[in-house]
């Protein structure tokens, strides 16, 4: 498998091609096409139920599309076209693809049976094959980065929501992902600690070249961090562009009304 750094830089990190996702009769995404270039920070906005979470879950292979194709670095993620037919790829292939992708969840989902450090090193040791010493060292660096030095041996349940989410960010970064998926990572937090988590993500965005796909209602954050905003409605991208344009001069009525609703303006 070619290292992503050997790839033609114009190959998009994520590419959706005619993706359709249904839950029973409910068609959530239909004929969805979009690309995310490598190093891009793309924020998905749109009303609740418009399918933003579903898109991230499709990329993380937590859901499977019913039609269409998703490519990561130009490689098919779960399905490929063979002789005009849509063919499911083996679990082993999906596993390899997953290693390039990290995700931070709204509900943190730290492992409660492990300490903070154990959460951070579990996958690096057992999936990436790092030595325990290396993984712990890297874990320490990441803890310092998210401002949690000294919490190595703490149990997740003894941490505040904001601290848990910072550990979850560190845990995702410990896998050194090329793509990071962030699904409303501050929605479960008390308003006064949202800032500390966003500050860390701003720092990650500044200091790395990780491709980010972000779902958030924090429009200031979206504006600071992302270089592109995609507005979803009815399972389609109805408008996209740089944050400045979308937030100040949207062309679509629905974007305008959505923004005025979330910005309370």
């Amino acid at each position: 498998m070619p290292s992503p750094h050997d790839l033609d830089p114009s190959t998009p990190a994520i590419r959706f091609e005619g993706v359709e996702k249904r839950f029973g009769d409910n068609v959530v995404l239909q004929g969805l096409d979009f690309e995310v270039a490598r190093g891009d920070r793309v924020t998905l906005i749109g009303p609740s139920g418009s399918g933003k979470t579903t898109i991230l879950r499709l990329v993380m292979t937590l859901e499977e599309a019913n039609e269409g194709y998703i490519f990561i670095d130009g490689e098919p993620l779960t399905h490929t076209r063979e002789g005009g037919k849509r063919v499911a790829l083996k679990e082993r292939h999906r596993n390899e693809m997953r290693k390039r992708i990290g995700m931070v969840f709204q509900q943190f989902n730290l492992f409660p049976n492990m300490t903070v450090m154990e959460n951070l090193i579990e996958a690096p040791v057992h999936v990436l094959g790092l030595s325990k010493a290396d993984a712990v060292e890297r874990g320490r660096e990441l803890l310092a980065r998210v401002g949690l030095v000294g919490k190595e041996d703490a149990h997740p349940s003894s941490l505040s929501g904001g601290q848990q989410q910072r550990v979850a960010i560190a845990r995702a970064l410990a896998m050194d992902p090329e793509i990071l998926l962030l699904d409303e990572v501050t929605s479960a937090l008390d308003p006064e600690i949202v800032g500390e988590v966003l500050e860390i993500l701003r720092d990650v965005a500044r200091t790395t070249d990780i491709t980010m796909l972000i779902v958030t209602h924090e429009m200031h954050f979206a504006r600071d961090v992302s270089n592109r905003v995609m507005m979803f409605d009815g399972g389609r991208v109805i408008e996209q562009g740089d944050p400045e344009t979308i937030f100040t001069a949207p062309t679509q009525e629905r974007t305008k009304s959505f923004l005025s609703a979330v910005l309370g303006a």
Partner: peptide, 26 residues
């Protein structure tokens, strides 16, 4: 909780590893 399964998948843990280290202890 489903989140525990999903977080394990997001970290690329294998199904056996996930069962042994994450799910069974809980």
């Amino acid at each position: 909780p489903a989140g525990q399964w999903e977080a394990s998948t997001a970290l690329s843990l294998s199904p056996v590893h996930r069962m042994r280290r994450i799910i069974i202890p809980q």
